[in-house]
């Protein structure tokens, strides 16, 4: 509704020649805020090739499967004949019993839980994905959160003493996270804090929120983390680094 009404106010672009050639937008704006008040300070121009990409669910699915495969430990272990859980003694003599010939108890044909061929730990389940496809998925995930207004870019100059341009609390007390969640009405929402370097106060304080808050350094961020989050608070240097890494 609002989008449509804004679109009607759009201006006309200049064209040349018989072909109506014009250039699409190259930048889009994000609000720069301070932490933890989230007070808006100014705008920052973000590249449209990164933040104005269409939502491609197929790319997201590929990236999420790739990450989940990579995260598997591969500790599955099936005992086989080679593990020799039983004695090597021949169960019965070769001739004279009237029964079929048998060897020792380690045979997988016997009812002893052994398999002829079983998976052995450690096993590498990781799959391959082209780097550019993964980067496109990263762009798609971050752009979707940006378009839905769930991406909060932290930076700029702090105006008050308690406010800062980095994603960190002044004290490591759980009360800091509690007040942050209550003040911004983030209860029961999954929060993701992406920092440029390790922020000890933030890590200690967000233990209060349990599994509802993730604190990640920029290098550790995955597509799954971005998709899982309901609100993302990211430092401007970390965002610049991620754009630099995943720009195709």
């Amino acid at each position: 509704m609002l989008k449509n009404s804004i679109r009607r106010l759009a201006t006309q672009t200049a064209t040349t020649g018989k072909l109506n050639i014009a250039q699409p937008s190259s930048y889009t704006l994000a609000t720069l805020r301070t932490f933890p008040s989230l007070e808006p300070q100014t705008f920052v121009p973000l590249p449209a090739t990164f933040f104005d990409v269409p939502l491609r669910r197929d790319l997201l699915w590929s990236a999420v499967v790739y990450e989940a495969d990579k995260a598997r430990v591969g500790s599955g272990y099936v005992p086989t004949k080679g593990d020799k859980p039983f004695s090597n003694r021949k169960i019965q003599r070769q001739k004279g019993t009237g029964n079929a010939r048998v060897g020792d108890r380690n045979s997988p044909t016997r009812d002893n839980g052994l398999k002829a061929h079983g998976i052995k730990a450690p096993h590498d389940w990781s799959t391959e994905l082209p780097r550019k496809i993964y980067s496109k998925a990263f762009q798609t995930a971050l752009a979707d959160q940006y378009k839905n207004g769930k991406l909060f870019v932290i930076g700029g100059e702090s105006v008050t003493e308690s406010d800062s341009s980095i994603v960190d609390f002044e004290y490591s007390n759980p009360e800091a996270t509690k007040q942050f969640i209550e003040h911004h009405q983030l209860k029961r929402l999954h929060l993701l804090f992406i920092t440029d370097v390790q922020r000890d106060n933030l890590i200690k304080s967000t233990e209060y929120a349990g599994t509802k808050a993730d604190v990640l350094v920029k290098e550790a961020v995955e597509v799954r983390d971005i998709l899982k989050a309901k609100r993302i608070f990211i430092e401007l240097p970390a965002l610049e680094w991620l754009i630099g890494k995943h720009q195709t």
Binding site: S25, Y27, T42
Partner: peptide
């Protein structure tokens, strides 16, 4: 290498979304 965001003052309104493209 971190992407260097341009200065806000160096951006024209025609480079932003809703430029009629």
């Amino acid at each position: 290498q971190a992407f260097k965001l341009p200065e806000l003052s160096s951006i024209s309104h025609t480079q932003l979304p809703n430029n009629g493209f």
